[in-house]
């Protein structure tokens, strides 16, 4: 059984993006802390649970992006994955998920995985497109936003539970090879063990260089990046903590809410 986990490295949620290029894009400063997308951490954990159940399972981690994303790939190896793959792609401005999905699908065609797992979306862009697109390009079935996964080895299939709107769910059986994207409730990601941390230090990450070759296809593009619209009054309270607390009490009292 060969499993590929596709991960994304993102800027930490508290970092402040700065609008650049006359409003055409936004960038993070040099001091920004990057980390593994949390949904992808759950994807890695789900793959490792399958590996724990059957040690013959191989788990590869793949990420696409500039040099820095190797750190996220290494984090996957620290958690217990076997190998890392980095598709090196300089991202200047917007990169279409379909372009990334195409590069990953091309890699998968030769590497042949039984199961591909990724997070339901990235925390920063929240599109959730790349996973299902990879599956479609490979002709694999897929299920997005799963909260349960079981392998039926003898039938070469998986049983998944998908989250639906309004707290209902559905379950289904999907033939392998397949792709699933996982929701955060599916498991609790492990902390890396010391031995895996040591192993990750020397692990060689296979690099596929796409920096020169990729000409972006005609696709959707970002016209501009703008400040969010203030949807409500947005009154910011000032002063010390005690003053703010008192001001809030007064305002709620005036509205007969307290």
């Amino acid at each position: 059984m060969r499993i590929l986990v596709c991960i994304k490295q993102i800027a930490d949620a508290e970092s402040r993006p700065i609008i650049t290029g006359n409003g055409s894009w936004a960038e993070y400063g040099n001091k920004t802390a990057y980390r593994l997308n949390r949904f992808d951490e759950h994807a890695i954990e789900e793959a490792l649970l399958l590996k724990n159940a059957d040690p013959g399972t191989e788990v590869d981690i793949l990420s696409i992006g500039p040099e820095r994303v190797k750190t996220a790939v290494r984090r996957g190896i620290e958690m217990g994955a076997d190998r890392g793959v980095h598709i090196n792609l300089e991202e200047k401005g917007y990169t279409s998920p379909l372009l990334k999905a195409g590069l990953i699908a091309t890699y998968c065609k030769s590497a042949k995985y039984d199961l591909i797992i990724t997070g339901v979306m990235s925390e920063d862009m929240m599109s959730g497109q790349t996973g299902p697109m990879i599956a479609a390009l490979l002709g694999y079935p897929s299920a997005a936003g799963i909260i349960g996964l079981a392998l039926n080895r003898s039938k070469y299939s998986i049983s998944v539970r998908r989250e639906l709107d309004g707290a209902s769910a559905c379950s289904m059986t999907i033939k392998l090879p397949a792709l699933v994207t996982v929701q955060s409730g599916i498991n609790r990601p492990r902390y890396p063990s010391l031995s895996n941390v040591m192993r990750a230090k020397t692990a060689v990450i296979e690099e596929i260089d796409q920096r020169e070759k990729t000409t972006p296809a005609l696709c959707e593009n970002v016209h501009s990046v703008i400040e969010t619209k203030q949807q409500r009054a947005g009154l910011v309270l000032c002063g010390t903590t005690t003053e703010k607390a008192e001001a809030l009490w007064q305002m709620l009292h005036k509205k007969s809410l307290i």
Binding site: A26, D124, M125, V225, T228
Partner: peptide, 11 residues
């Protein structure tokens, strides 16, 4: 986009 901190206008 950008963790909900900015809006993006797409064509």
């Amino acid at each position: 986009g950008f963790h909900g901190k900015l809006d993006m206008l797409y064509e």
